[in-house]
């Protein structure tokens, strides 16, 4: 018979927080500790094993899983709601307000459609009054938005996208300025067409990145999945498949094709600031966009290129890093940065 005063080793272990953490989430340190502990307590090896399996092998009996379409539609609703709230950044707007707004909006829509019907019957132009919506990611921020067809776009700092409130039946046209990562809902009967500068990208359903900032000397399309058609409106065209990208210099009609570099092309989505042989001037422009700052330079602009990456780094961290390479001092005053180049020794 078990001695009631003495707690069983299995339960001693289950009460040991360090032990429980080790089973749930082993690290190098805890593996080391517990393998040593077991070799010092050989008589308890089996107790350890049983306690471990109690933690690892228990499941809840009633566990209905979310269906995939429910999983997706909930996320869609949440992102759409976040988006809606982003439009009105006022902190005083509560959800109640939104509810009223929604009611008001549907009333207005009803009135509008009534009006349209009347217009229609009286023979005036029945063209749908499709409004255009512009979403913008100001300097220093990134914005994810959901388009009317369910496609998602993430805009990098200093970029914007314009699209109709409703897509009509034969195509999905949008206009991009700057840089955006697109995840386009598959719909073969309605091509998704992105216009920027004098170029277009046409897809049926895929994910890819477009970089086309006006102040930069090139435009670039990098494909993550699927297939896209990248064309200059006046003529030449290239079809890109997954992991390929095409660059078009301003004034050229010749596409330059290379492989995708995940960090360089998609890293910004994960807040990775990435430089590959960039000049000081290019880096300055990128930092101004990324952090929403203005950079003044005191002294001669340093020559030489820089390669490196900063993951989710603060402005201070990035500038400190660069200051070792380019040898400068800096001060940050709100959104103004002053870089003072150190004299050559």
């Amino acid at each position: 018979m078990r001695n009631m005063d003495k707690e069983h080793n299995i339960f001693k272990l289950l009460k040991n927080e360090h032990f429980v953490k080790w089973v749930q989430n082993p690290t190098d340190d805890s593996n080391h500790f517990w393998s040593k502990w077991i070799s010092n307590h050989k008589d308890q090896k089996k107790d350890v094993e049983i306690a471990r399996r109690i933690i690892q092998s228990g499941r809840l009996k009633s566990n209905k899983q979310l269906a995939e379409n429910q999983y997706d539609s909930m996320l869609d609703n949440i992102m759409a709601y976040a988006d809606e709230r982003k439009q009105t950044t006022g902190p005083y707007l509560t959800r109640t307000f939104w509810r009223y707004t929604a009611v008001a909006a549907s009333l207005i829509l009803m009135l509008l459609s009534l009006g349209l019907l009347m217009d229609f019957t009286s023979g005036t132009d029945d063209k749908m009054l499709s409004e255009f919506i512009t979403k913008e990611a100001p300097f220093g921020s990134k914005v994810t938005t959901r388009l009317p067809d369910g496609s998602m776009v993430t805009l990098n700092s200093g970029s914007s996208i314009t699209y109709p409130e409703h897509f009509n039946e034969d195509s999905r046209p949008v206009e991009l300025s700057g840089e955006g990562f697109f995840e386009v809902e598959h719909n073969p009967s309605m091509p998704f067409i992105i216009s920027f500068r004098d170029q277009t990208v046409t897809v049926l359903g895929t994910s890819f990145n477009i970089r086309a900032f006006d102040q930069e000397s090139y435009a670039e399309v990098a494909v993550a999945t699927g297939k896209v058609a990248y064309a200059v409106k006046s003529g030449s065209k290239v079809v890109l498949t997954a992991n390929n990208k095409a660059t078009l210099k301003k004034g050229s009609s010749q596409f330059e094709q290379t492989r995708v570099n995940e960090l360089a092309d998609f890293g910004w989505l994960n807040r990775v600031l990435y430089f590959e042989s960039n000049s000081f001037e290019e880096i300055r422009l990128e930092l101004e966009k990324w952090y929403g700052i203005e950079v003044q330079i005191d002294g001669n602009t340093p020559s030489g290129t820089y390669s490196g990456k900063f993951e989710n780094a603060s402005l201070d961290e990035v500038l400190t890093g660069l200051s070792f390479i380019y040898r400068f001092d800096f001060t940050i005053d709100d959104t103004n940065v002053l870089i003072t180049i150190k004299p050559k020794q």
């Binding site: 994910s207 997954a242 995940e262 998609f266 890293g267 990456k309």
Partner: peptide, 19 residues
């Protein structure tokens, strides 16, 4: 952070396009 040697270990984007 000044070197690019650890590029491969930090690629977050999978080939299916999802981050």
């Amino acid at each position: 952070s000044l070197h690019t040697t650890d590029l491969n270990s930090t690629s977050h984007l999978h080939l299916d396009g999802s981050v």
